[in-house]
């Protein structure tokens, strides 16, 4: 019974979504189910937040590693929640101010830090050990060079070659990956709808 009801819900929800695609009369049921899906899935953020607060309060209580920084996380979390609920999220309100003046620069900085790490990782990993690795290296190098002014200054055709690589061989590779993944997704979806794949239910028998 522990598994029967969830498996039944999965089957019914999956079949409704498939039917609504082919049978126009069932489209409204499908749309409602999609809204339910969005609502239920969005509750996962609360689960994540409860977990985040639990981890940090636990760390403070037992003086775990880097526990002195945990209050910063909790205060940052509380500040966004309080300002969002009390003042609203419209432009010019404290919530929006904290988002644009603090979160946006921090997000951009975090992602720009990756430029350094990617560069150092590439330096170690990109060895022209065989001709395919060399091809990967050349392809990456040309694309990078084609997107900065110095590329065109070295040779006027570099941006064109970079664009060609992006539009043709890159698109072919990406499409192969996408189609392959879509096939895998169909197989996995069928397994889930028919209850063959049950690992998402916590591995219970």
């Amino acid at each position: 019974m522990r598994l029967a009801i969830p498996l039944m819900i999965t089957f019914v929800a999956g079949m409704i979504m498939i039917f609504q695609f082919f049978v126009p009369a069932t489209q409204s049921i499908g749309e409602t189910l999609q809204e339910w899906y969005m609502i239920v899935a969005s509750f996962a953020i609360f689960l994540g937040s409860v977990n985040l607060l639990y981890v940090h309060t636990h760390r403070i209580r037992f003086k775990g590693r880097n526990w002195k920084y945990s209050p910063v996380t909790i205060i940052g979390f509380a500040a966004m929640i309080i300002t969002g609920l009390v003042f609203g999220i419209e432009p010019g309100k404290p919530f929006d101010y904290m988002f644009t003046q603090m979160m946006v620069p921090m997000g951009a900085t975090m992602f720009s830090l990756l430029a350094f790490f990617v560069a150092s990782a590439a330096f170690r990993a990109f060895r022209a050990s065989n001709w395919r690795a060399t091809l990967l290296l050349i392809s990456a190098f040309v694309v990078m060079l084609g997107r900065v002014p110095i590329g065109a200054m070295i040779w006027g055709k570099i941006p064109l070659i970079s664009e060609w690589i992006m539009q043709y061989p890159n698109m072919a590779g990406q499409r192969a990956v996408m189609i392959g993944a879509a096939m895998g997704m169909v197989a996995t979806s069928l397994r889930m709808i028919f209850g063959i794949e049950r690992s998402y239910l916590g591995g219970a028998d």
């Binding site: 999965t10 079949m15 979504m17 899935a41």
Partner: peptide, 27 residues
């Protein structure tokens, strides 16, 4: 598990149809 079942079922149904259409057939 009930909530997960709804998410997984709906997501699987969507993948079977809409996502297959965009990620495979359209490609």
């Amino acid at each position: 598990r009930m909530s997960l079942a709804l998410i997984v079922g709906t997501g699987a149904g969507l993948s079977m149809t809409a996502m297959f259409q965009t990620n495979a057939l359209a490609q």
